[in-house]
């Protein structure tokens, strides 16, 4: 019997993987991919509760999260391209113009 708890654990695992990816990698593309992983984890939780409560609200919000993820990917990749034009690097440690 698969319970809501199983899905919450899966979501927590994926979210933690995403956090580790964002904090440890230096390649901006992989950081953006890790953010997508975290959004997927959130979606799993939303839909698990939508199924548990037999309400579609969770699914509607999952669709909004996917919309935000699409917008974020478009703008984020636009920033990556603009950045690559200026600095020729994907390494976030070299992008320190605003670092104090």
């Amino acid at each position: 019997m698969v319970t809501t708890f199983h899905y919450l654990l899966l979501g927590a695992a994926l979210f933690t993987i995403g956090v580790i990816g964002v904090l440890t990698r230096r390649n901006i593309m992989i950081i953006l991919m890790s953010i997508e992983l975290m959004m997927n984890a959130v979606n799993i939780n939303l839909i698990a509760f939508s199924n548990r409560l037999q309400q579609v609200t969770g699914q509607v919000f999952a669709i909004f999260v996917i919309t935000v993820a699409a917008a974020e990917a478009a703008v984020g990749l636009g920033i990556v391209i603009a950045m690559f034009k200026n600095k020729e690097t994907m390494n976030i440690n070299e992008i320190d113009l605003m670092k104090w």
């Binding site: 919309t67 699409a70 917008a71 974020e72 478009a74 703008v75 990749l77 636009g78 391209i81 603009a82």
Partner: peptide, 16 residues
């Protein structure tokens, strides 16, 4: 959400 997508499209075009 549709406005957000529009803003994202414009932003991505302007940035790149």
């Amino acid at each position: 959400a549709s406005i957000l997508l529009l803003v994202a499209i414009v932003g991505a075009v302007v940035l790149s």
